[in-house]
């Protein structure tokens, strides 16, 4: 099978006032079509830079980012993004917020078809009945659900999730993990998820990539094999404990390099 996302030997350095700051140094990540890649690593190790590279918002100094067999040089309308900050537009209803990408992407659905698509997604994440509300009337978890719909509405090849659940309380976060699996079952996507939460990484990801401390390189890759849709109980099995333990040790190593 051909990989959908292929990041090869990426190096990147930011110029700063205090001299050049290398953030990525030998990053390799491969995600198959339909795969879900969770990326974990110490704080400030360049994880967000990774998302900007995949989105085509910036170019790496060295190395290549391939999407769907094409070299990424500039932004492409085939990605969907969701951040820790849901950045919904306060002056639009939830429905209109979700429809935003369709107004921009060339060949996006228009009119009734666009609205139906948005309504369908909102229903899928449990926001039926909230279409006409303003973002300020929704809770943090609901806003994040809406943000997820917006990221998916134009049927992107790749979903880029930059700590989308990071600011939510633990129970809401678990709810959203389950929602992610529901959505993925009905609206298949390939995703790359940046997270600080190891449980989130093994619950959502079928592949967990551990980055080293800055400058980040791919330090460790774990394949999470699972049969069918997981339940939250699966996080409390000895198998899950062992995986978490391995990842925990890898993070410690990564932090050691950062120090």
């Amino acid at each position: 099978m051909k990989p959908l996302i292929d990041i090869k030997g990426v190096r990147h350095t930011y110029p700063t006032a205090g001299g050049p700051l290398p953030v990525l140094d030998g990053l390799d990540v491969t995600v198959q079509e339909g795969g879900f890649c969770a990326v974990v690593g110490p704080s400030g190790c360049g994880k967000s830079t990774l998302t900007r590279l995949v989105a085509g918002l910036m170019k790496p100094d060295e190395g290549e980012v391939w999407l769907h067999g094409e070299l990424v040089k500039s932004p492409r309308s085939t990605v969907g993004m969701a951040f820790q900050n849901p950045v919904l537009l306060e002056w639009r209803s939830i429905l209109k917020n979700v429809m935003l990408p369709l107004e921009i992407v060339p060949g996006g659905l228009k009119g009734r078809a666009a609205e139906e698509r948005a309504r369908y997604l909102l229903a899928l994440v449990g926001l039926e009945g909230f279409e006409d509300k303003r973002p300020s009337e929704l809770s943090g978890g609901m806003r994040q659900r809406a943000s997820l719909c917006r990221a998916l509405v134009h049927q992107p090849d790749v979903l880029i999730l930059d700590e989308p659940f990071g600011a939510l309380d633990a129970f809401t976060r678990e709810d959203l993990w389950l929602t992610m699996h529901d959505v993925k079952a009905k609206e298949p996507f390939t995703a790359i998820l940046i997270t600080h939460d190891l449980r989130e990484a093994i619950f959502l990801g079928d592949q967990v990539v551990v980055l080293s401390g800055r400058p980040a390189r791919t330090q460790y890759v774990m394949d999470v094999h699972r049969a069918g849709t997981p339940t939250l109980e699966d996080l409390y099995t000895p198998e899950a404990a062992e995986r978490l333990n391995i990842l925990r040790r890898q993070i410690e190593i990564a932090q050691g390099r950062a120090a």
Partner: peptide, 19 residues
Amino acid sequence: EYRDILRSLGASQTTIFWK
């Protein structure tokens, strides 16, 4: 992030300004 959301979809600066 507001910029990134639109820029990642290939929106122009003008579109970002108006939207």
